[in-house]
Design a protein around this nucleic acid. Structure first.
Lengths: 209, 209, 209, 209
DNA sequence: CATGAATGAGACTTCATTCAT
DNA sequence: CATGAATGAAGTCTCATTCAT
């Protein structure tokens, strides 16, 4: 049985120069992926874009997919960092405005990274579950879960928390993605409002007066 | 003027044998796509799966993508046919139950074709817009639009029909897809109910008593 | 040792219908060759142009090259027939004008068949010596030889008949071909004159008065 | 890595290897072309003849035609270099012997490269105009044109310089080619004499006494 | 005889990956 | 560590030719 293909960086670079080279590779790979899609992102093109010889790539990554995974992980880190800040800010607001802010932030973040998002969604073959992107998704789900549990009595009686959790996170996530990738003729702010309305009405027990 | 790259079958088979071979190719391609994804679906493998020589494929299709498109078109035809029946049935019901039936039918249909759906969603790079799949999507959107327009006064005052249309169709479509592909621990019927609830609450003007 | 590839028609058709089909194939092949060159002249395209199924070709010709050879032979026959008439006419004229007429006829004939000529010269890989084209060349050479021998005393003393024969026929043949294919900015009549001048001066013993 | 010996060429050991490989490819391609013609010169065969893997070819050339063009360019360079020397030498002679020398040189050069010449003339489909071969042809044409213009008064009155230029260059070029490829039973020196005679008589105003 | 479906060898090309320097 | 030449498997596609109907 052949060894499973390793998808993690071959080495954790200790030296500064190595770290910089690795960044250059990831920057280049990100650019190439965004511009030419997964299939167009050959290792040679990535190496060229990074100003490196093609062989050098393999000193930092065991194979092409490891590079892609690293790009996606870094993308997830970026999103996590940015969203983290928004989450903290949102926690100090009342939940109504806080929730809306988070929604808005999520859409805005995706809009800022539409190219890479398109690659993730449309072009990247499944490379096994994406550790960090899934972690980010999980983190947002946890937030919603806590909120749902804490405010259980405010919601309509029959609400199945587990089902609702899935519905809400997927609705927000998928609609945000489609909104950014398909660019329907809906203004950004309106989109946020509609999404908020969709979710709030789904869980609240009483209609707005 | 050069002929546009043809994505349509090279020949319309007149003989029975020819028709059967074409079906064999499409069946094989469907199987291979479902099992190995778009990138893994080489013409060689499709030919082998169809019990044909590689060259024979090209008597029926001008290139690989034409085969994939044909598979997707056939998939869309299948869905359209099945959904068509459901739509007719739903039209003779009162709209509350009719709408739910349609929702249920849509999810059920996707469940029955999960493998191919996965390929469509995850693996197939954009081959230009898919004629027939998009047509089907459009048809459903039209249905929703008509419903929204006819019942405009029943809904909450501020409802932006265009925005709502997009929100509704994408929500239903994307959630159904994710439900089928990710298999969250939500029973089929519950899923239908939640989805119906999500949509109805989004548009109605008064709370359910 | 495998049998040598046969380059002659598989059968001499006895029935009228067969003969007509054969003509259709040759017409089609001629057209396709002229329009798309040797490499572009696939058997399928020839069959299509002839309004036949691709398999039927092989009832009349053992392989593709046999078709090409037949086309070229027919071309040679056509040239021979036309030139034959001109030769006869030329024989009843005084040799000075007769020679010029032949020159003119040769260039005119090639001009009328420039497309096919281009294929013969530029695209057709050597398929062994072309029986009939070579025969035609030989016939013209014989004519020149006879003329040279009969008028030996009129020419400059040192003339080596064999060398001159080759020089003359090749000069006329090659220049006519290049003239037709490369279309230099020289009018047809001038070209004939120059060619005549070139040859006459080469062999005559006395200057023009 | 051990320090490089101080006296070893500091220059490009890598590029040197590369250069050699390229030469090997061109040599192999030349050989294969000469032996099997254009159609028989597959990339696989060229690679094999060069002792390389098929893929390596594409490190040096973007496609098959680029290889053929490079072979032809190298051939043209070779001819140009050799002819260049002859031209210089001829310029220091009186024009009568100089012209003959050039004629002789041209035929001799072609004889030395008969194999490749055959490929160029018979097998290579038009790959667009051959830069360097055409340049060489042009260079010779210019030489003739200058000579014709400078000696205009020495020639017969009615001479059309443009027509004559074309006639002369094509006559010499085509006859030399046919002589080398068809090997008529004419000795080399005789051939040169006849060719010279043919041209001189064509342009001169007075016959030799 | 005609048909056209089927064949299969072989062409060109790409690309992830390895390895000697 | 870096380089880039070299590899070779695999992919898409074409085409002359055969054969069952």
């Amino acid at each position: 049985m052949p060894p499973l293909p390793a998808h993690s960086p071959r080495k954790v670079p200790r030296q500064e120069r190595s770290r910089r080279t690795m960044e250059r590779i990831l920057d280049a790979a990100t650019r190439v992926l965004a511009e030419r899609g997964y299939d167009g992102a050959s290792t040679n093109r990535i190496a060229a874009a990074a100003g490196l010889s093609n062989g050098s790539l393999y000193q930092y990554f065991p194979n092409k997919d490891a590079i892609v995974v690293a790009v996606l992980d870094r993308f997830a880190d970026h999103l996590a960092e940015r969203l983290g800040a928004e989450i903290e800010a949102a926690m100090s607001e009342p939940w109504q405005t806080g929730g809306r802010s988070l929604l808005e932030a999520q859409i805005r973040l995706l809009e800022e990274n539409a190219d890479l998002l398109r690659v993730v969604v449309e072009h990247v073959p499944r490379l096994g579950p994406f550790g960090k992107l899934d972690a980010l998704r999980q983190r947002l789900a946890d937030l919603v879960r806590i909120y749902l549990l804490l405010n259980r009595d405010r919601f309509r009686p029959g609400l199945d928390v587990d089902a609702a959790l899935w519905i809400i996170t997927e609705t927000v996530g998928q609609l945000a993605i489609r909104y950014v990738l398909d660019r329907p003729p809906i203004p950004h702010d309106r989109m946020v409002d509609e999404l908020a309305e969709l979710i709030i009405r789904y869980i609240r027990s009483e209609p707005a007066p």
